[in-house]
């Protein structure tokens, strides 16, 4: 199969993820969308690795997965804390990040 199709898929996934981040209010869903974008990026890396015939992209993808795992841990912890303190997982309720 033409590896370029993987790139189209990755672009589609990335777009879905991006729209999800922008549109959804629930922090968990936003979070899942972020993961979707990360995985879209991973998919491109692997696809490019395949196209260029070297392993750099795949190695990079492993790194991303490790970082993503760490990020999930921290991110979920933040969301849980947020929910505990505000009884809501809506990102718009947490608009304290301003001057």
């Amino acid at each position: 199969m033409n590896p370029v199709n993987y790139l189209y898929l990755a672009a589609l996934l990335f777009t879905i993820g991006a729209f999800g981040v922008l549109i959804r209010r629930n922090a968990i869903v936003v979070f899942m969308c972020v993961e979707l974008m990360l995985n879209a990026a991973n998919l491109t890396l692997v696809a490019f690795s395949r196209m260029h015939g070297n392993l750099d992209g795949q190695i990079m993808a492993f790194f991303v997965m490790v970082v993503a795992a760490a990020e999930v841990v921290v991110g979920l912890a933040i969301i849980v804390m947020l929910y505990r303190s505000r009884h809501s997982a809506s990102v718009d309720d947490a608009s304290l990040m301003k001057l």
């Binding site: 991006a18 981040v21 922008l22 936003v30 990102v91 608009s95 304290l96 990040m97 001057l99």
Partner: peptide, 17 residues
């Protein structure tokens, strides 16, 4: 310029994208 910083994570995301 400060008004842009409204604290809504999603509007930050829009500007990032």
């Amino acid at each position: 310029m400060r008004r842009v910083q409204n604290g809504f994570a999603r509007s930050y995301a829009v500007s990032m994208f």
